[in-house]
Amino acid sequence: MKVLLVDDHALFAKSLSIALCDFPEIEQFSSTKDIQHLEELIAGELPDILLIDINLGGLTNEDGLMLTKHLLEHFPEQKIVILSGYNLPVYRKEAKRVGAKGFISKDVEPDELLHILLMVNDGATHFPREEVFIEDLTEGEKKVLELVATGAKRKDIAEQLFISERTVSNHLQHIFEKLQVGSTIEAVTKAIQLGYIAPI
Score class of each variant (00 low, 15 high):
R154Y: 02
G102W: 08
I42H: 09
N121E: 12
H9Y: 11
T189M: 09
K142W: 00
V148N: 06
T167Q: 06
K14Y: 06
V181C: 15
L118A: 03
P110S: 14
K178W: 04
V120G: 07
G44P: 01
F127A: 15
S105Y: 05
S169W: 00
Q160D: 05
K96E: 05
V132Q: 10
E94V: 04
V132Y: 12
G57I: 00
L50Q: 11
L88G: 05
L46C: 11
G99R: 03
P47M: 09
G64P: 06
S105G: 12
H74I: 15
F162K: 09
I26S: 02
L71P: 11
K155L: 03
I49K: 04
I197G: 04
I185F: 00
L118T: 14
T68G: 06
I52T: 15
D7H: 10
E39R: 14
A187K: 03
Q173A: 07
E159W: 01
E27Y: 02
D111S: 12
G123N: 05
I49H: 02
E135D: 08
K153A: 09
K69Y: 01
G123S: 06
I116A: 08
N121W: 07
F176K: 13
T68L: 07
L194C: 07
K69P: 00
G99F: 00
E27G: 02
T184N: 13
F23W: 08
L72W: 06
G58L: 05
G151P: 03
E45H: 12
E77Y: 04
I18T: 08
E130V: 06
E62V: 01
V132R: 13
Y196F: 10
E146K: 10
